[in-house]
Amino acid sequence: MPALSVNSLFKSYGGVHAVSDVSFEVARGDVFALLGPNGAGKTTTIEILEGFHKRDGGDVRVLGVDPGERHNQRWLRTRIGVVLQEMAVESFFSVRQVLERNAGFYPSPRRVGEVIELVGLCDKTDVKVKKLSGGQQRRLDIGLGIIGNPKLLFLDEPTTGLDPAARRMTWDLIRTLSDQGTTVMLSSHYMDEVEALAQHVVVLAKGQIAASGTPWSLGGREFGKVVISFTLPEGVAIADLPVQTSRCAGGKVEVDTDCEIEVLARLTNWSMESHHSISGLSVMRQTLEDVYLKLTHDAEQRAEPVVA
């Protein structure tokens, strides 16, 4: 049984489809990412899975039960952890106090000390929440998400607004949790985050699935166009090169191609034979960000807001 399964999910607000025909499955122990621009339906989807919103249509199973059913909610809430997009921790309590308070809600919580260690706040145990930095507060927020020892953890844009160091610490924490067997459902609009953490990704745009797959294969990325670039050797004109160039600016030449092996072979052979050394050679596959921007842009073009 998968940790999560969503089948043809629909939800609209005031006649506008927030989520429309979304289906996916998350295997136990996976890190799964929902990617999409603001307003794409990520939070709506997550909050339906958490049982916070009712859906209009489709079938949803979280740890095998329907989160829309009232009698399942309490059972479910002892087994899931939730970190909301808005950070929400009482500011006048100490780190230990908030964690102890929330630990009391669960039948078999993690030890408070263990959570403090996991989120790296050992030296802040008795410090008031309001005295913590933004990154530290966010880590405490995640600590509250895992205090109940959840089988499934929802993280809605966990690193938005964090500095790079705090983001990396949060990534490490998510990896640790994943290694310990927690299934993680993540939403983000950072491509590097998804690439670093997730095994599966669904790109949402305008409430619909624009693409899904592994981060490295998304949108045909493993086959798609690459950019080969290098510095134009001295005394060589563009026309002398053995390949068709796409751009040339400031002595830097770029070749767009989808048969990179052939282009590289021609270039390197030419370089060896004509004794023109090529410097600054790089081969760049399109980044996940390129793919993502293209996918979401295409979806925007296709779908004007749908009125139910």
């Binding site: 002892t78 929400a88 929330n102």
Partner: peptide, 14 residues
């Protein structure tokens, strides 16, 4: 407004 109620709503505290 600070999201504390929502957060509690999603905890096992009924």
């Amino acid at each position: 407004e600070t999201g504390l109620l929502k957060r509690l709503r999603l905890s096992p505290l009924p």
